[in-house]
Amino acid sequence: MNGIHDLGGMHGLGPIVVEKNEPVFHHAWERRVFGMFLPLAATGAFGVDELRHAIERMGAPAYLNTSYYEHWLFAYETLLVEKGVLTQSELTTRRQQIAQGPV
């Protein structure tokens, strides 16, 4: 697809920002997202080509305005719901429970 992910040769995307002594992960949640990739792939839920395509389908504004591990998270959620491993309502309900805090 002719998506925003296909970036080669575009102008106007801003300066290259290099972080000195960059850590491998910037947030604890990034670790969890990274660490779930291989276990999920091992269940046969999706392969790397499907993961990439799910990221490509996220839409240009979201793609440019979210970080790398948010792309992965979006792809997991999308593919797991599409394949019937989870339902959107399970995700929504669980998020609400977590947001309300421990009981």
Binding site: W29, R32, F34, G35, L38, P39, Y76, L86, I98
Partner: peptide, 28 residues
Amino acid sequence: EIEIRVKALETLLIEKGLVDPAAVDALI
């Protein structure tokens, strides 16, 4: 918001027996 999304996903996958948190820890 993103922490909530990640936690929601991971806890559901653990409950369904699809992800072992110890495996996630080891990979990290």
